[in-house]
């Protein structure tokens, strides 16, 4: 019997030493999070990514896995973020006719709104005494994750903190767009979609596709343009 336990221990060590355990856990949590999200009626304030991340963290904590070792194994998945960022160029190309049709409001709004999205957060955090590392992690808060990871690494921020900020930004941007659309009021689906993508990246874009296909197209556009614009501008501005 005790021999069996020894073998179990060896098995656990062997699995933990290969990336396959990290990949399996991440995939499992991803599908479990999506399933749970559908079961609880797709609430706006609790997106699948948050559910999956909580499940995954819980499992890592319960199994007492080393977080660094998990991260090392998960490299096999995260390395795909590079090609995935390149892939965002394809819907951008496919929606080029939308950009042409509404180029004036987009060209005026995008640079101002994307810059302010970062500046508002930076000024508030700075005034409340945040360290440079925290500021660098908050700056790309409205940028879609694969691009934001690149920006934060370049600025010297913490990727985990940035990811948390990104998640919260996406959720509250979705809630605020819904709220302000009623208060202002704004009914144009193109504007709502664009605002969702610009401020709420992928989470806002997912919400926009629930409003309508047009809103979804404009959200992808807003998300893509904000990502590119911020990635170009922020590293230059931040070093000043």
């Amino acid at each position: 019997m005790s021999e069996l336990f020894t073998r179990l221990g060896v098995l656990a060590d062997t699995l933990a030493a290969t990336p396959i355990l990290a990949i399996g856990l991440t995939l499992g949590a991803f599908f479990a999070g999506n399933w749970l999200f559908a079961r609880i009626g797709r609430p706006l304030w609790l997106p699948p990514v948050l559910l999956s991340a909580c499940l995954l963290s819980g499992v890592i904590a319960v199994l007492a896995l080393d977080y660094q070792a998990y991260q090392q194994g998960a490299r096999w998945l995260t390395v795909l973020l590079g090609p995935a960022t390149v892939a965002l160029g394809i819907p951008l190309y496919q929606q080029m006719h939308h950009i042409r049709a509404m180029w004036r409001p987009i060209v005026v709004t995008l640079p101002i709104a994307a810059t302010l999205a970062a500046v508002y957060a930076l000024v508030i955090a700075w005034a409340l005494g945040a360290t440079p590392e925290v500021l660098a992690s908050l700056a790309p808060k409205s940028v879609t994750a694969p691009i934001a990871i690149g920006i934060t690494e370049q600025l010297g921020g913490s990727v985990p903190l940035m990811m948390g900020g990104l998640l919260i930004t996406g959720v509250v941007a979705t809630l605020f767009v819904d709220l302000l659309a009623r208060l202002l009021p704004v009914k144009d689906e193109r504007i709502l979609g664009f605002a969702l993508g610009l401020n709420g990246h992928a989470i806002g874009t997912a919400r926009a596709f629930e409003i309508s296909h047009t809103a979804g197209a404009f959200a992808s556009l807003g998300m893509g343009l904000t990502g590119v614009f911020t990635a170009m501008i922020l590293p230059l501005v931040f070093h000043l």
Partner: peptide, 24 residues
């Protein structure tokens, strides 16, 4: 600092985007 920056900052930037787009 983090919570205020995320909540207030996002509220302001959503407001800015909607108003600017509406205006233009």
């Amino acid at each position: 600092a983090v919570a205020a920056a995320l909540l207030v900052g996002t509220f302001l930037s959503v407001l800015t985007t909607l108003l600017l787009m509406k205006l233009v």
